[in-house]
Amino acid sequence: MMEMDLQISTKTLEGIPVIGLSGEVDAYTCSRFRDTMIDVIEEGNANIVVSMKDVEYIDSSGLGTLVGGLKRASEKGGKIAVVCSSPQIRKVFEITGLEKVFPLFRSERDAALELAREVVT
């Protein structure tokens, strides 16, 4: 059995669902992340915060999973904001250009507030 080094949690902040990831988001683990994201969107949420502040590594599968989630969210007029503090994770978004697709925040609350404000306006 492969060791699955990814823990996933969910909570709500400022009325916005926050998917918390901890560990490694890669080809072994991203299917569970995708399932969680689909569940959250199908519950009627368009905007989502994905918190990667405890993510050690992310590969292109993890990024692809986020893009797939964004497609579903944007069908409902929503967005996905990403929280990351690790320079390594931030570099992945910057170097691929995906930081222009997924707004990056340093804290979950800031990300949730931003998405909540967009819902109001």
Partner: peptide
């Protein structure tokens, strides 16, 4: 495992969400 998820997702967008596909193409 192979990890072509990003390329696959982007390819599917071409037919499923052309607007998002064009945006990704512009910024990536």
């Amino acid at each position: 495992p192979e990890e072509y998820v990003l390329r696959d997702e982007v390819r599917w967008l071409k037919t499923e969400d052309a607007k998002l596909f064009r945006f990704l193409k512009e910024v990536m």
